[in-house]
Simulated scan of single mutants.
Amino acid sequence: MHQIAERLWCAVLEQVARTCVVVLGHGAQGIRNHNAGFGVFAPFTDTTEQQFEEMVNVHLKGAFFLTPKLLPLMADGGRILNVSSGLTRFSHPGYAAYAVMKGGVEVLTRYLAAELGARRIAVNTLAPGAIETDFGGGAVRDNADLNASIAKSTPLGRVGVPDDIGGAAAALLSGGSGWINGQRIEVAGGIHG
């Protein structure tokens, strides 16, 4: 049964890789590698093994095993951008499991940067802070008190919006960012600086 599940997983990864190439074009110079994710808001002691394993599968296993499937489709000199979280640098109770997963993505980024250097493929991590999205049930976007609290703690005086992250991602995937490699770039408006 395990071999069947493994073959199915590989088939899914191959299809995702082919889909990415269709969207980005053969030999695409930049591929945002991993932005899949979900969070578990629970104290460390209340996080279940099942929740933890599901997060490993999505956050770590997905990034680790999708990347080799995409590499043959990438041109030398390309870019890979993994997505982490500001929560790997600043700690808020209830997010330990999520932060551990994203910390793993950051470590993976450094190793990929070292191993893919011969092909001049730059690999970096983008680590957003609190952003007004659907993530976490839209709490940052929809809870006015939470939004105001985060904005008050942020030197730029507001919570991030998707365009803040999109612009940073585009910059890291651009041709002018080729010398940035193996780095964690936080896009959080300076919160907890």
Rank of each mutant, 00 (worst) to 15 (best):
L71A: 10
Q50D: 08
I80D: 00
I80L: 15
V58K: 07
K69W: 00
P68Y: 06
V56I: 13
K69F: 08
Q51E: 08
N82D: 10
K61Q: 13
L81C: 08
G78K: 04
V56A: 02
Q51K: 04
G77Y: 09
G62I: 10
P72I: 03
Q51R: 04
V83Q: 14
R79D: 11
P68G: 11
L66A: 09
V58H: 09
K69R: 13
F65I: 03
V83C: 14
L60E: 13
L71H: 06
F64W: 15
G86E: 10
P72Y: 04
Q50G: 02
S85Y: 02
V56G: 02
M74S: 05
N82V: 05
L70Y: 00
L66Q: 07
N82W: 10
H59A: 03
G78R: 03
F64A: 15
Q50S: 11
G78M: 02
P72E: 04
G86Y: 10
F65M: 10
E53R: 12
L66Y: 05
L60C: 13
K69L: 02
A75N: 14
E54C: 11
M55R: 01
H59P: 12
E54S: 14
D76T: 06
F64R: 15
T67W: 01
E54P: 01
N57C: 12
N57T: 12
K69S: 11
V83T: 15
G77F: 08
A75E: 14
F52S: 01
V56D: 00
A63F: 13
N82G: 05
V58W: 05
N82M: 10
A63L: 13
T67P: 00
N57S: 15
S85M: 06
L73R: 12
E54T: 10
L81P: 09
Q50E: 10
S84H: 09
D76G: 09
V58T: 14
L70A: 01
L71D: 09
H59G: 03
L60Q: 15
M55S: 03
L70S: 03
A63N: 11
L60R: 13
L71R: 05
